[in-house]
């Protein structure tokens, strides 16, 4: 029997979660940087990550579009400031060190407050895992850089470069590192991809995303967007020594980043994380 909602996904043998956002945010929540005693101790880049919301994609000219599957999607909306980030994160732990597959349908747009094409005003959208085994914290990062400084880029990038880990507060128990900074991104080999932006800012098309990562080898196994499967042999995650209190961590996060002083809106619906165990 075909399940119409799941049929557009190709999960591995066990589904860890399947979130379609029609009954809530399903554990996808706002990200905040680590702090001690005062919120002022948060690293600057982590202080104002905008929270997720449930959106029916209500546009000023055509009304509600609904989501890819049902009425609501998870929306990540930046502030109308270049560089502003919005992040939705779901926090799990893993029970088996084996293959993972993250699948999602997504669409992104600049806010439609101007009556022009605006395709170079949406900055970037991205996805990361945040994982830890007995020895290492491993953070695979991928983003689609749509535009930079008003210029069309349309290229997938990954990030393995680490930034310095900073002490937060005075107890020595809390650290932080701003891994979402705009620096250190490298191009995915042959990673240019023209996604369907459509012809005005209120017409959105949904795209398929698949990211495979193996918790045993801590390496990418696959990466696909729509009809393009990319060679993952040349891409690597961020790796650092294991940290206290993060054992068996299996976090997943999506984000959007404004490319100009306009809001960038990322919609995600649905998300399936599956594993082989």
């Amino acid at each position: 029997m075909i399940n119409p909602a799941l049929s557009k996904f190709d999960p591995l043998s066990r589904i860890i979660y399947y979130d379609d956002f029609d009954t809530g945010l399903n554990g996808w929540t706002a990200l905040i940087g680590n702090y001690e005693e005062s919120l002022d101790s948060i690293l600057p880049g982590f202080r104002d990550l905008r929270p997720p919301m449930l959106s029916s994609s209500a546009f000023w000219d055509t009304g509600s579009a609904g989501s890819c599957d049902g009425t609501y999607a998870m929306k990540l909306a930046t502030r109308p400031q270049a560089g502003s980030l919005s992040v939705g994160i779901k926090r799990m732990t893993y029970r088996h060190k084996g293959p993972l597959r993250l699948e999602a349908y997504f669409t992104f747009k600049p806010e439609a407050e101007k009556l022009r094409l605006s395709d170079t005003d949406a900055g970037s959208i991205g996805f990361l895992f945040d994982l830890q085994d007995d020895t290492h914290r491993v953070m695979p990062h991928l983003r689609y850089l749509n535009a930079h400084d008003g210029q069309r880029v349309q290229r997938w990038q990954f990030k393995q470069e680490r930034v310095a880990i900073r002490d937060i507060g005075a107890t020595g128990e809390t650290v932080s590192h701003f891994h979402l900074s705009d620096e250190g991104w490298e191009d995915v080999p042959d990673g240019n991809q023209r996604l369907c932006y459509n012809e005005i800012a209120t017409k959105q098309n949904w795209h398929y995303l698949r990211i495979g990562f193996d918790l045993d080898t801590m390496a990418f196994t696959e990466f696909q967007c729509n009809d393009r499967a990319f060679d993952v042999s040349g891409i690597a995650p961020m790796v650092m020594p294991a940290m206290p209190n993060l054992w068996c961590m299996l976090n997943a996060a999506f984000w959007s980043q404004a490319g100009s002083d306009r809001r960038t809106l990322l919609h995600v619906d649905s998300v399936v994380l599956s594993g082989e165990f």
């Binding site: 009954t23 945010l25 909306a77």
Partner: peptide, 28 residues
Amino acid sequence: RSSHTAVVERNIWWEGEWSTEPYEAAWA
């Protein structure tokens, strides 16, 4: 009943003319 608490501004100074960021919540 569905419920959700959104933190729409955090540790931010309201000075002069100010608006919180828009929050979409047609479900509520």
